[in-house]
C-alpha cells in the first residue's frame, strides 16, 4: 500500500526475535504503548534503527481507520484498535515463522512430558489447540499451540503465547500461567509425534507411523521448507528418526490425553499401542 500522503511517524522500540530485527511505527504515539502486547514469545529488546522487517500502523480513530501493513505489503484492515492488534499479532508470528533464519517453524501444538516433547503437527482448525489445552490440564508443560520451533539439533524451543481456542463464532484465550500451569523454558528433544485431527464420531485407534511418513507429515506442516529444503529435511529427519509417531483421528481430546501421556512415557518402538 503506497503511502502517498506525508505522515508523521512515531517509532516504537524494536525487537529481536529468531534472528530477525523487527520494527514498529505508528501515526499515533499513544498506540505505541500497546505494541509490546503483540511481541512474540522469546523476544529481546533491540535498540538500533535498522530493521529486517518494519510494521506500520495507520490509526485515525475519528475516521475509524485502523490499518497495519508490513513494508507497504500485506495490509491488515480492522474496525478497531484491539482487533487490529490481534490480527497484527497473528501476522507477526507467521511472518517470523516464514523469515526466521535460526530456527525451523513447524505448525504444531507442543507440550513436554517427563523431559520429552509431544508434538501434534497440523494447520489451523485441526483441533491441536484443544488437545494442547487438555494435555496442559493433565500436567504437561506448555510449549506452544501454534509452532514447534526447531533448532539445528532438532530440539524444540518454547513459543508460548496464550492458547487460542475457538468457541462458536468467538475466540477465548487460555493462558497456562494464569492457571498455574508450567511453561517450557529450555529446549527439549521430541519423543512423540501425534498425527491426528478432530473427526466427529471417530474412534481413537492409534497406529504406528514410520519415520519416513512422520517426516513427510512434518514437512507438509513446515512453514518455510521451500526456502531451504536441504537443511530443513536434515533437521526433520533428526526429529522423526529419534521419536515415536502415531496416527489416528480422534473425537474428544480429553479422552485420549492419558493414552498419549502413557505413550510418551514409554518411548520404545516395541511397545504395543
Amino acid at each position: 500500500m503506497a503511502n502517498t500522503v506525508p505522515r508523521e511517524w512515531f517509532q516504537s522500540p524494536g525487537v529481536f526475535c529468531h534472528g530477525l530485527r523487527i520494527g514498529f511505527r505508528a501515526t499515533q504515539p499513544e498506540v505505541l504503548a500497546k505494541i509490546p502486547t503483540i511481541f512474540p514469545p522469546g523476544w529481546e529488546s533491540y535498540g538500533d534503527a535498522v530493521f529486517d522487517l518494519e510494521y506500520s500502523l495507520e490509526i485515525d480513530s475519528k475516521r475509524l481507520k485502523y490499518i497495519a501493513y508490513l513494508q507497504e505489503n500485506d495490509t491488515i484492515v480492522a474496525s478497531g484498535l484491539d482487533e487490529l492488534l490481534n490480527s497484527l499479532r497473528l501476522h507477526l508470528h507467521h511472518t517470523i515463522a516464514e523469515h526466521a533464519s535460526e530456527h525451523v517453524f513447524v505448525h504444531a501444538g507442543v507440550v513436554a512430558w517427563q523431559g520429552r516433547i509431544i508434538l501434534v503437527p497440523g494447520r489451523s482448525r485441526t483441533g491441536k489447540s484443544t488437545l494442547v489445552r487438555e494435555l496442559i490440564r493433565a500436567g504437561a508443560v506448555y510449549f506452544s499451540d501454534e509452532f514447534a520451533v526447531l533448532d539445528d539439533d532438532g530440539l524444540v524451543h518454547p513459543f508460548a503465547r496464550p492458547v487460542s481456542l475457538r468457541c462458536g463464532n468467538s475466540r477465548i484465550q487460555y493462558d497456562p500461567c494464569e492457571h498455574g500451569k508450567p511453561v517450557g523454558a529450555q529446549p527439549l528433544p521430541v519423543g512423540l509425534i501425534v498425527i491426528t485431527e478432530y473427526v466427529p464420531q471417530s474412534k481413537w485407534n492409534p497406529e504406528y507411523v514410520s519415520a519416513g511418513r512422520a517426516l513427510l507429515n512434518l514437512a507438509q506442516n513446515t512453514v518455510s521448507i521451500r526456502s531451504n529444503p536441504a537443511k530443513i529435511l536434515r533437521i526433520l529427519k533428526a526429529v522423526a528418526s529419534s521419536s515415536l509417531a502415531v496416527n489416528s483421528p480422534r473425537e474428544e481430546a480429553s479422552e485420549i490425553v492419558l493414552n498419549l501421556l502413557n505413550l510418551s512415557t514409554t518411548l520404545d518402538s516395541s511397545v504395543a499401542v
Binding site: H94, T126, S129, T130, S254
Partner: peptide
Amino acid sequence: SVVAAKPGDTRSGPEGDGQGNGGNGQGGN
C-alpha cells in the same frame, strides 16, 4: 507424497481452533 506448502499457505485463518463449549476442535488436515 506430499506437496510442500508455500509460505503464505500455512498462515492460519482467524486465530484459534476448536468448537463448542467443550472446546474440542473440528477441522481437517
